[in-house]
Amino acid sequence: MTAPVYLGVDVGSVSTNLVLLDAHSLEVADKVYVRTQGQPIRTLQRAMAKIARKNQWQIVGVGTTGSARQLAGVILGADVVKNEITAHAVAALHVEKGVQTIIEIGGQDSKMIILRDGVVSDFAMNTVCAAGTGSFLDQQAARLGIPIQDFGRIALRSRHPVRIAGRCTVFAESDMIHKQQLGHSLADILAGLCDAMVRNYLTNVGKGKEIRPKIVFQGGVAANQGMRRAFEAALNAEVIVPRHFDVMGAIGAALLASETICREGATRFHGFEITESVYQNHSWECQDCSNQCEIVDIVKDGRIIASWGSRCGKTDSSSEYGMLGAGN
C-alpha cells in the first residue's frame, strides 16, 4: 500500500532538501537532506533513490525551489517551479498562522519577508555582502575548533557577551581574535558573535522594515539557539523556530504543488525512473551574434530535454521550463 504525497524539492547552493507532505493532512511525512556538493543533478538522483527505496510513497505532485529550481523542475517533471522567497512564505504561513515577519538565514544568503494579512507585502535579500550567513558561522566554529552543532548551546551559557564588529566578516574575525587573546571565555565570544550577526542582519536586510510579531526564524542557521536568543534580545519579542525549520523551502514547494494539482489535475512527475537515467549537461557559447550567450543543454539518455541561456530564444526548448528562469 502506498500513500499519496506531494514532493517538495529545494536545491540550494549548500544542501538539497526533499520533503514529502501527506496529500490529505499536508503534514511532513518524510524528509531527506543531502549536501549538494556542486552536483545538483547527481545529488537529486541520489536523494530520489533514497525515497524510491522505501517504496511506500506515491507522488501525486511535485514542486521545486532554490537556486537550481529550473534544473530540478526539468529533471523531475515538476508541476510548479517557484522562487525561494515565495516558497518560504507559503511554508511559514502554513505552519504558523498569522506570521508577519520571516527571518530566513541559509548558507549563502539571508532574507527577510514581511507579510500582512497572509500576503507578502515586502521582502529583502542580502545584496553586496555575505556577512551573517551560515557559511561564516561555520567557518568561525571550525576556526575555534568546535562542532557547529554545539555553537548555539555554548553561546547560551554566556553571561556577558563581548562586543564584536558586525559590519563585515573580516572586521568581525579580527575583533574575535583580539577578544580571545585578551582571555574572554568562548561562550562570551560566541554569544557576542551572534549579537553581531543579528545587528548586521537587522541593519542590512531589515533596513527600513517594520518587524511585527509573529516572527518566524527559519533556514539552517535557525538551529543555532544562540542566534535565536540574540534575535529575541534585539527585537524584544518572541522568535518562533518551526519544527522543520531546515526544510521550509521544500515544504513551501510541496504546498504550492498541492495548490497547482488542485487546480490542474494530474501531475507531470516523470516517475522514479529518473534515478536510473543518465543526465549530462552540456554548455556552449553561441557564436551567431555578438551577445555570445552561454547556452546550457540538459541531455537525458542522449536526448536534449531542455535548453536555456539564449537571449534571443532560438535555442530555447519548447518545454515550459525553457524560459528565462521559468517564472510560473
Partner: peptide, 18 residues
C-alpha cells in the same frame, strides 16, 4: 543572474497575489 531572477520572480508573485 540567479539571485537577480529570484528577486524579480518574488516581486512579481507579490504583485500578482496582491
Amino acid at each position: 543572474e540567479t539571485g537577480f531572477q529570484t528577486r524579480l520572480e518574488a516581486f512579481v508573485d507579490l504583485l500578482s497575489r496582491r
